[in-house]
Amino acid sequence: MPGKDVAVTFSDLQIPKPAAAARIVVAMSGGVDSSVAALLAAGTGAEVIGVTLQLYDHGEAAKRSGACCAGQDIFDAAQVCEKLGIAHYVLDYESRFREGVIERFADDYARGRTPVPCSLCNQGVKFTDLHAFARELDADALVTGHYVRRVVKDGKAELHKGRDPARDQSYFLYGTTDEQLDLLRFPIGELPKAEVRALAAEAGLIVAAKPDSQDICFVPDGDYARLVKRMRPETEAPGEIVDLAGRVVGTHRGIVHFTVGQRRGLEIGGSPEPLYVVRIEPDEKRLVVGPKQALAISEARVGSWNWLGEDQREVEVKVRSLSRPVRARLDDGTIRFHKPEFGVAPGQAAVVYEGERLLGGGWIEETGAAEAGAELAA
Rank of each mutant, 00 (worst) to 15 (best):
E267G: 12
E267Y: 15
E310Y: 07
S323C: 12
A294C: 03
V302M: 14
G265C: 09
R301P: 03
S323K: 13
A328M: 06
G269M: 13
D332P: 05
E273R: 14
T334V: 07
L322A: 12
G265H: 14
L295C: 02
R327Y: 06
D311W: 10
R263V: 04
L330K: 06
V289M: 02
W305H: 12
K292E: 07
I280V: 05
R324T: 09
Q312C: 08
K318V: 07
I268Y: 12
I297Q: 03
P291A: 03
I297K: 01
G270V: 04
L330G: 03
G303I: 14
E281K: 04
V289S: 00
S271T: 12
E299N: 11
R263M: 10
I268M: 10
V315A: 07
G303F: 11
L295T: 01
V319Y: 03
L275M: 05
D311T: 11
V302G: 07
V288D: 05
T334N: 00
P325M: 13
L295W: 00
G269V: 12
Y276C: 02
L275E: 06
P282F: 11
G309H: 02
I280M: 05
W307Q: 04
R327A: 14
R279I: 07
P272N: 14
R327E: 10
R313T: 11
R301L: 14
K285I: 02
S298Y: 05
R313W: 06
D283Q: 15
L266N: 14
E273G: 06
V326M: 14
V288W: 01
V288A: 01
E310K: 09
V278C: 01
R313D: 10
A294F: 03
E316V: 05
S271I: 09
D283V: 08
Y276H: 13
V302A: 10
L295Q: 04
Y276I: 08
R320S: 11
K318W: 03
V326W: 13
V319S: 00
